[in-house]
Design a protein around this nucleic acid. Sequence first.
DNA 1: TAAACGATTAGCT
DNA 2: GCTAATCGTTTAT
Length: 203
Amino acid sequence: MASPAQDDPGSLPAGAPLGPEFFARPSDAVAPDLIGKILWMRGVGAGRLTEVEAYLPWGDPASHSACGSTARNAAMFGPPGSIYVFFSYGVHYLLNLVCDAEGVGSAVLLRALEPLGEGGAHGPATYCGPGRLGARLGVAPGLNGSMLGEESGLFVLDDCLRPQVGISTRIGITRGAALLLRYHAVDSRCVTHRGRTRKGPDS
DNA sequence: TAAACGATTAGCT
DNA sequence: GCTAATCGTTTAT
């Protein structure tokens, strides 16, 4: 098929790359701001973030950083704008973006991505679930601890599009499940199936 | 050294 | 809607 510029994984999509200063805030403040942003992986493709979850450094039993720093989650304590990748259930790679100051241990988990453009007439329209998102972007353990930008080949871009953001409880966790730290694009249907059935707890 | 858990997904009823 | 499968990490003895 013909490959227009927007479909070329080697071309930078329109938008301003977000720097470390954007992430140098608490994860629960960064998370809703990430909804609607463009995530671009060099050589792979780009998509729009439709669902994320925030993980807090303290008072959040579901966060990996709650039990302190270990060899596994060391990247989560890295500088803002760095990448934290971990292997879940021995099956899936999950992609996190480190927030707040270095050493704090705050991050945002990227759960769902909506491909840019037509989304591929012959492919899935969305990539629901953090495991699929990671697989689609080619997330590898080597990205763990890398910085957004040239170092990792992963960029977050702001195209000034600001969709309505909904908030709800997080998914797939047993501890801290009551905390409202999951943010998603209300306009998008690309959400995890457990939450998809719910139209809105507040409405 | 050994056992249990987990930020998931897919499949079946 | 519910249950099983998957493997690295963590914790306990």
